[in-house]
């Protein structure tokens, strides 16, 4: 495994981004592959699927979401979105369309690489689903539907359990409101974000060390939630 350098495809039309991202990925032990537009990127994915894709949403030849949808037809590896803060809806759409995570421009290289690591690990773990998950001092027993914190069992309502299990299975990935609501409450409730606010609040009361400063369930403002403590 020492010689294994995960191949990371960067699709971005800004040459300056490649100019620093290339050396950074290289130095962090990845093999960077450059694509300046969506068509080149898709061709590259089809030719030899990379281990992960970093995709800019603002591409000259194709909308980022469209590129993602096309890629998802034949590629199920992790995809991380590069986006600007003022394109919130595009970002959410991209996550709903199957992106694993996103990083807002401008970003520090450390942040991007951390997300990349989580995504890659998540992908490895998904291949062999684990019956139990551990997040900090919280343990989730997926078989017995039991959650314990610091060894003691925490009593959760069925919906609270479902919600936490859903977040845990995301494994540090951002899950959009829509994704969580659909998974836990069903497609009819995909817009009822207020349910989430209530139940996340209850979970934080029961599971967080300090519910006022949550570390376990992190809020991605306007987008969704992710399970923290994994990055």
């Amino acid at each position: 495994m020492t010689a294994f350098r995960p191949r990371i495809l960067v699709i971005d039309d800004e040459p300056q981004i490649h100019r620093f991202l290339g050396p950074a990925l290289d130095a962090a032990g990845y093999e960077p592959i450059r694509a300046d537009d969506a068509t080149t990127g898709l061709r590259e994915i089809a030719r030899k699927p990379p281990d992960a894709v970093v995709l800019d949403l603002g591409l000259p030849d194709m909308d980022g979401k469209e590129a993602l949808a096309k890629a998802r037809a034949f590629y199920d590896g992790p995809v991380i979105i590069l986006s600007a803060r003022d394109r919130e809806t595009e970002k959410i759409d991209a996550l709903d369309a199957g992106a694993d995570d996103y990083v807002e421009k401008p970003f520090g290289v450390g942040e991007l690489l951390a997300r990349l690591r989580v995504a890659l690990r998540h992908r490895l773990e998904r291949q062999g689903s684990e019956p139990a998950l551990q997040v900090g001092d919280v343990e989730i027993d997926l078989v017995n539907r039991r959650i314990s914190k610091g060894g003691t069992t925490v009593k959760l309502s069925p919906k609270e359990y479902d919600l936490f299990a859903c977040l845990a299975q995301g494994n540090g990935r951002v899950l959009t409101h829509k994704q969580i609501l659909t998974a836990v409450w069903g497609p009819a409730h995909e817009h009822d974000v207020q349910y989430l606010r209530v139940f996340v609040g209850q979970l934080r009361q029961k599971l967080e060390d300090d519910p006022a400063e949550p570390k376990l369930i992190e809020t991605e403002p306007g987008v969704g939630y992710r399970l923290g403590g994994l990055v």
């Binding site: 800004e14 991202l21 130095a27 600007a84 003022d86 421009k105 401008p106 970003f107 290289v109 690489l113």
Partner: peptide
């Protein structure tokens, strides 16, 4: 405007953090 301001900023921040980390 946001794109034109952010792209150079992204490069500056990205390059600087690359240099710091690696």
């Amino acid at each position: 405007v946001s794109h034109d301001l952010r792209t150079p900023l992204a490069t500056v921040l990205g390059s600087a953090t690359t240099l710091i980390d690696y």
